[in-house]
Design a binder for these strands. Structure first.
Length: 432
RNA sequence: GGAAGGGUGCGUGAGCGGUUGAAACGAACAGUCUCGAAAACUGUCAGGGAUGCAAGUCCCUCGAGGGUUCGAAUCCCUCCCCUUCCGCCA
């Protein structure tokens, strides 16, 4: 959530930031400004009335204590008239406040000044490259063909069990998935200093609101439908472990010594991906359920930009150790995610397509999520609390890494070499 | 899932319709004292919001939501969570 005080103080600066993402946010901003004005006016009216009532109630208390029944009755009669008026005003105020809140929740974060300005993904800026793609003296197969040939992947079985865009791993394929996950978690916990978390895969609505998936992107989520209107509430399947990890600090005031917090978790991720029809329908690239090792940092405000560089380097280290050709992009203003103020994407080379494919997205969300979650830090005993900064990144996507390994390490004889760093986890040097 | 008990500030814990946003003790922070520290003493010590140049004034919050009342931490209803016991289960 963008700071409402900032929006009031410098609406044009906010407008400029939002327009760099997409000009259509101008109208949403105007709407919010108007709602906020009305809301504050209504609040003032209600609060003034409450002040009058509170003073009268105290007077009644005092009169009764002094055994002045008549005096008490007199004030009570006066106050009774207020009640109706207050009720009417409050009935107007509460939907207005809710509307204002929803409008504020619908605005994305402001891009950081270091983010390249652009209008589409074509304007993303390449920052650096890892190793160069290997040369093949044969036509490289795509990962789905390879995986099915080697008996690692069974898309037909996935579809039979859960419908299209679900995949099933078996035998050495399943084992390779497990190896990839363990390799990444060990790297991040033992060498990069992250605490490993094993989170719930279902989350409450307010938790999804905290990280920004709700209310705007409900259509992308799987909802349990367990709500019965009162006792049972709806839970959502997490679209990423960023959701539970980041929300670990919701409603907390952390002492400065606790920061930075660095957490990592493996989790399955569930996304409806509504609207992605026709795009990447084959293979492991875009499924409804996928696996990911996530990295999350909670930092002091002044540390988050540097932390983004470190977090990105940690994710990149996975690709370096596994000898996967890759590059790093700084996403432009039109392409960064809703909650992000700056994002680096890691892309890996896919020989069958002759192009790079996203495998990780690392974002500094500034105080955007912290405001929604009310996550704060206190620098010392006397200091006022301030919002923390939150960062997240895939470290990295497991299914896409599986695909990248298959494609980049395929051999002329149809087998696949296992990257050296992965051998101790997988237990063999090749597949097939 | 059933039964009983309980959720109050950083912690323990009092309050059970009327200057109680909240006693007391502890923690923390600042000061006095000291060469320094400890002890002792003194003071500060919830968060959010509206308004204002500021000082300040006002509003909201005692698990959450609703209700009763001129007035609710205190009474009523619903829900959530925790503890203990029983049941079930991995």
């Amino acid at each position: 959530m963008i700071d409402l005080a900032l929006i009031r103080r410098s609406p044009e600066a906010v407008r400029a930031g939002l327009s760099a993402r997409n000009p259509r946010y101008g109208a949403a901003l105007d709407e919010l400004l108007k709602l906020d004005l009305d809301n504050r006016a209504a609040m003032k009216e209600v609060e003034d009335l409450r002040a009058v009532r509170n003073a009268a109630s105290q007077a009644i208390g005092k009169a009764k204590a002094a055994k002045d029944e008549a005096g008490a009755q007199k004030v009570m009669a006066e106050v009774a008239a207020l009640k109706e008026k207050m009720g009417a005003l409050e009935a107007l105020l509460s939907p207005l406040s809710e509307k204002t809140r929803q409008a504020a929740l619908g605005l994305p974060n402001l891009p950081h000044e270091s983010v390249p300005v652009g209008t589409s993904e074509a304007d993303n800026k390449e920052v650096r490259r890892g190793r160069a793609p290997a040369a093949y003296d044969f036509k490289p197969l795509d990962h789905q063909t390879l995986g099915e040939k080697l008996g690692l992947l069974d898309f037909a079985a996935g579809a039979r069990l859960a419908g299209s865009r679900f995949c099933l791993w078996k035998g050495a394929g399943a084992r390779l998935m497990r190896a990839i996950i363990s390799f990444q978690l060990d790297l991040h916990t033992k060498e990069h200093g992250y605490e490993e978390i094993w989170p719930p895969y279902l989350a409450l609505p307010e938790v999804l609101e905290g990280t920004g998936q709700l209310p705007k992107f409900e259509a992308d989520l799987y909802k349990t439908g367990t709500s019965d209107g009162e006792k049972n509430r709806d839970l959502y399947l997490i679209p990423t472990a960023e959701v539970p990890l980041t929300n670990l600090v919701r409603e907390q005031i952390l002492p400065a010594e606790r920061l930075p917090m660095k957490m990592t978790a493996y989790s399955p991720c569930f996304r409806q991906e509504a609207g992605s029809y026709g795009k990447d329908v084959r293979g492991l690239i875009r499924n409804h359920q996928f696996d990911k090792v996530e990295l999350v940092w909670i930092t002091k405000p002044e540390d988050s930009l540097a932390a983004l560089e470190t977090l990105t380097a940690h994710a990149e280290e996975v690709l370096k150790r596994l000898e996967i050709p890759h590059r790093v992009l700084s996403l432009c203003t039109a392409d960064i995610g809703f909650a992000s103020r700056k994002t680096y994407d890691l892309e890996v080379w896919m020989p069958s397509e002759g192009r790079y494919r996203e495998i990780s997205s690392c974002s500094d969300c500034g105080d955007f999520q912290a405001r929604r979650m009310n996550a704060r830090l206190r620098r010392d005993a006397k200091a006022a609390p301030e919002f923390v900064h939150t960062l997240n990144g895939s470290g990295v996507a497991v299914g896409r890494l599986f695909a990248a390994i298959l494609e980049n390490f395929q051999q002329k004889d149809g087998g696949v070499r296992i990257p050296t760093a992965l051998v101790p986890f997988f237990g063999a040097e090749r597949l097939g």
